[in-house]
Amino acid sequence: MQAALFYGLSIVAIMCACGVVVSRNPIHSVLFLILTFFSISGHYILMNAQFIALVNIIVYAGAIMVLFLFVVMLLNLNKESEPHKSDLVKIIAATSAGLFSLVLVGVLKGATLPAYEGMMDSENGLVKNLGRVLFQEFLLPFELSSILFLSAMVGAVLLGKKNVQA
């Protein structure tokens, strides 16, 4: 049952991810991306990470995707304005990406999974346990990320403000 779900979700996720890249219409790309996020959330639930799964749907599939859609609509992207890449660039890009995926597949194929020692507990991914890890072991990175967010906000305001020309 679990294995079937895993493979099903994986196939959906990969197909949709390909759809994001391949589809010509930006709106379709965004919609495919939403599907990808949903199937990845399914994976999270399979791994007992319920909280992350929900956050993934709310934040990514909800908030960020709406932003994406807005931007796509505002920019009014269409085929004519799309810059054309030369064939040489396309060939180089395809070759290097292909080689890279070959390396990845080759490595992952022969790899042995390290044994999982912890207990498989359905409560692992609940907010309580997550908070405990976040505020004990990872307290310092958690606090330090506030600097990152502050600087991102200052930066966004700096770039977005009107009429600041000296």
């Binding site: 310092l140 990175p141 330090l144 990320s145 600097i147 600087s151 200052v154 930066g155 700096l158 770039l159």
Partner: peptide
């Protein structure tokens, strides 16, 4: 810890992206 490495790189880079574009 690899987490702090990642956070460090991001904290270094994100202000930089803005600083590079600050001559609007």
């Amino acid at each position: 810890n690899l987490i702090t490495l990642f956070l460090g790189i991001e904290t270094l880079s994100i202000p930089l992206y803005v600083m590079v574009g600050s001559k609007r």
